[in-house]
Amino acid sequence: MEEKEQKKGKNKYSIIIPTYNERLNIALVVYLIFKHLRDVDFEIIVVDDGSPDGTQEVVKQLQQLYGEDRILLRPRPRKLGLGTAYVHGLKHASGNFVVIMDADLSHHPKYLPSFIKKQLETGASIVTGTRYVKGGGVHGWNLMRKLTSRGANVLAQTFLWPGVSDLTGSFRLYKKSVLEDVISSVVSKGYVFQMEMIVRASREGYHIEEVPITFVDRVFGSSKLGGSEIVEYLKGLAYLLVTT
């Protein structure tokens, strides 16, 4: 099926969005995706980990509005982790490209066209959003958060030489086959998962391009970065040093 679509010269983009208690955000994100991707063939795959707040009901209402072929709800019974959420969503993806993004509006769908454009221009296997170049940026971070972020970045750049400026960003576009290949070799969970994905892809020699994105920290709900994340990050860094 993938080959057939590529022969026709027509790309389809499967946007995988993992959710947990994002009933308002998912509706807003879906609206914004449809607003900004007008002439593109795409589907949205919502992987909901059994949110108790009624996220799935809202997604069903969105299916009524936009069509069940455009929005796919592929729930799981409970919280099973981010990495497996992508694997789960990937199983149901019918596009030849896959976009992964967060539901919490820190990733604005208005950047989707620039991801797609960059991929078409360069033929890259992965296009990753970066907050740390001109045109990108972050809003809503205090000094401590910025300091942590810069420190983490300098450490990673010094020790891993990853070839990308933003390792932990998770707004990315992948060729479906590349995502399937890379994700199968990734073992990290949670925060380090995104870093391991891009480092492994880089080591395997995949062509990676970057586009600037802005990152507005969670509008609704609270951010999830604490001391344990820093420890996890350092562990992840050491793990990647010896395994990649």
């Binding site: 509006l105 604005h108 907050r131 740390y132 170049v133 001109k134 990108g136 940026g137 972050v138 809003h139 809503g140 000094l143 910025k146 300091l147 810069r150 420190g151 970045n153 300098v154 750049q157 802005t214 990152f215 507005v216 509008v219």
Partner: peptide, 21 residues
Amino acid sequence: LMVGVGLMRFPTCPQEALLLQ
């Protein structure tokens, strides 16, 4: 030095928050 330079030149985007609202 790299952390310091990175901090000083940390790209921020307050206008994006308004646009998002």
